[in-house]
């Protein structure tokens, strides 16, 4: 069973209760920040800030539009971070949460490069750092609770449940919304499908969602090369052994010729 979250951006009002609840449950420190050009703060996610509400205020056709986008781990069905992790520290759990085992992580940071959403964040400021990201509150959901952000969301913008049911709900809301929603469940196909999904009433390019992300399964990008390794090695072996046989034969022939000449 895959759990997930459906984030209905039309309901998010940017109160940032989720941001605080996340820090509270996960015991993350407040960061030193300063005022930005809009209200997003901390202005970037970090090892100490796993989710933020990203504010975007714009003027569209003479009218002001403001959107609030909850950012954070998408909990991919086929996580790139898991596939590239050298140590097997990142694991997609049976319930859909993608988690990091800090005891296994060696700190190669390949997951940071691999994640198409830029999710994992590292404690660069520590001598013994950890890779951090949203765990879908694996500890809570394993005990039958909702993730902290979903539990605290006052407007019901963050829904937690089984992914299939949430996907059906998302499609139902879009279908029954009389055009209120953009006809796109973000996360249904993005990065090959994610457990965290979004629906929105404003065009997605007015949100801070990564609309340019691939819809392919990201682990496949490297796997297509990795799966050819046996053939590559076999080819190299055949080439080497064949050449060696040829070289030996030629050396023998040359030696015989020489020997014959002298004889």
């Amino acid at each position: 069973m895959t759990y997930g979250m459906l984030i209905d951006l039309s309901k998010c009002m940017g109160c940032r209760g989720c941001q605080v609840a996340c820090k509270q449950w996960n015991d993350l420190p407040g960061e030193e920040t300063s005022l930005g050009t809009d209200f997003t703060n901390p202005q970037k996610r970090s090892a100490y800030t796993w989710t933020t509400i990203d504010f975007l205020t714009a003027e569209v056709n003479g009218r002001t539009v403001a959107t609030f986008t909850k950012s954070g781990c998408m909990h991919c069905l086929e996580p790139a971070c898991e596939s590239v992790c050298i140590a097997g520290a990142i694991k997609r759990q049976e319930n859909g949460a993608v988690t990091i085992d800090h005891d296994k992580c060696i700190g190669c940071r390949y997951c940071q490069l691999g994640c198409p959403f830029g999710v994992p964040k590292y404690e660069y400021d520590k001598p013994v750092p950890r890779m951090q990201k949203c765990t879908l509150c694996y500890d809570r959901i394993s005990e039958g609770l909702e993730p902290a952000c979903a539990a605290t969301c006052p407007s019901g913008a963050i829904l937690f449940g089984e992914r299939e049911e949430l996907l059906a709900l998302a499609k139902q809301r879009i279908a029954e919304g009389n055009g209120r929603y953009v006809d796109h469940v973000y996360g249904e196909h993005e990065a090959g499908g994610t457990a965290v999904m979004y629906i929105s009433s404003v065009p997605l390019d007015l949100t801070t969602l990564n609309t340019g992300v691939t819809t392919e399964s990201v682990p496949g990008f490297t796997w297509k090369a990795m799966r050819q390794l046996p053939a590559l090695v076999g080819g190299a072996a055949v080439l080497s052994l064949g050449l060696m046989a040829y070289s030996n034969r030629r050396a023998r022939l040359e030696a015989e010729q020489k020997g014959g000449g002298e004889a």
Partner: peptide, 26 residues
Amino acid sequence: DIGIPWRIINPIVFGGNLHSPLFEIA
């Protein structure tokens, strides 16, 4: 370069992830 230097051979000693190109390189 890795975050926790003394764990550099951990993936080889304790096992790692066969899907990772980095693990294969190691």
